[in-house]
């Protein structure tokens, strides 16, 4: 009897706590985010200003080292290039998806979503196997006599871009597709009815209406590209490093923790800065949720 009462009392207490404070179920999440996420980031920022000496020394060193500036430049340039190419390829792909029969559309959707579930290392390895000097493409070209020595398809910016584009394409296609299927067809018909050529209808109506999807996709692809580590490590040259590789180099190989933390902070600022600027024009949370929700 007593145990029943205690049980009822217990569940009533929980009930009251839930009613009075919706914060209770939020508590584990807040604790996890504060101690396991924000704290490490704070620690890294703190180290960048204090290790080995207090002050801005680490940052001065970063901006006075040509190799570091080059690494910053490589990261931004390759990410920009990959985003641009992704946007062009993704636009055509999404356009085919939005404007073909249901069966073809499903097939295209499946083909672009499926690789998202495949382990990044597996996909990077498969690109390595194809692009390397004795890989499929070079062997094929050699056997038909088009080339004597292998083309430089790997260990360069080209290979890194190919890698990033093939990993990021779904994140470009999905938001573009989502905006394309929401375009009101009556507007297009009206344009045609008023005598516009198909090219004019596309340029003046369809393209502007689908641009929000392009912007959303580009933001996601650019920000993710900035953080790439495995792909440039396996497909890139050792001389043109991404900032992520740079950080790992200082922390894991050189054990210069304060300086490595500084490079990390700069990468973080680059990422958050891009998002901050973008958030003036779009809803970031919505953009991310819709893209991942479409998975």
């Amino acid at each position: 009897m007593q145990s029943v009462e205690t049980h009822a009392g217990f569940s009533r207490t929980i009930g009251r706590a839930l009613r009075s404070s919706p914060l209770l179920p939020l508590l584990p999440g807040i604790l996890a985010i504060v101690f396991l996420f924000l704290w490490p980031l704070g620690q890294m920022i703190y180290f960048s200003f204090t290790d080995p000496t207090v002050g801005l020394e680490n940052y001065r060193r970063f901006f006075q080292t040509p190799a570091e500036i080059r690494s910053l430049g490589t990261t931004m340039w390759v990410s920009f290039l990959a985003t641009l190419l992704c946007a062009v390829i993704g636009y055509i792909y999404a356009y085919s998806m939005a404007n073909s029969s249901k069966a073809v559309s499903r097939l295209l959707m499946g083909a672009v979503v499926l690789p998202m579930g495949v382990n990044l290392l597996v996909r990077t390895f498969s690109l390595q196997a194809i692009l390397r000097d004795t890989g499929l493409i070079n062997e094929l070209l050699k056997s038909i006599g088009l080339i004597q020595s292998p083309l430089p398809l790997i260990r360069n910016t080209f290979a890194v871009s190919v890698g990033i584009i093939s990993m990021e394409l779904p994140f470009m296609v999905l938001p573009i597709y989502n905006t394309m299927v929401q375009i009101n067809r009556k507007l297009l018909l009206a344009g045609e009815g008023l005598g516009a050529t198909p090219a004019r209808v596309f340029l003046d109506i369809y393209l502007p209406l689908s641009l929000p999807g392009v912007f959303a996709g580009s933001l996601i692809v650019f920000v993710s590209s900035l953080a790439y580590y495995v792909v440039p490590q396996l497909l890139g040259s050792g001389s043109e490093m991404f900032l992520s590789q740079d950080v790992s180099n200082w922390i894991q190989l050189q054990a210069e923790f304060g300086y490595g933390a500084t490079v990390g902070v700069i990468l973080l600022i680059l990422t958050l800065g891009t998002l901050l600027i973008a958030s003036l024009f779009m809803n970031i949370d919505k953009t991310l949720s819709e893209t991942t929700g479409a998975k």
Binding site: P40, L41, Q43, M44, A227, S244, I251, G260, L268, T271
Partner: peptide
């Protein structure tokens, strides 16, 4: 955590 670059988070976590 989805937005912060993995290497950045890894560095901070490594310290803590």
């Amino acid at each position: 955590p989805m937005i912060v670059p993995a290497v950045v988070l890894a560095t901070g976590m490594y310290f803590v």
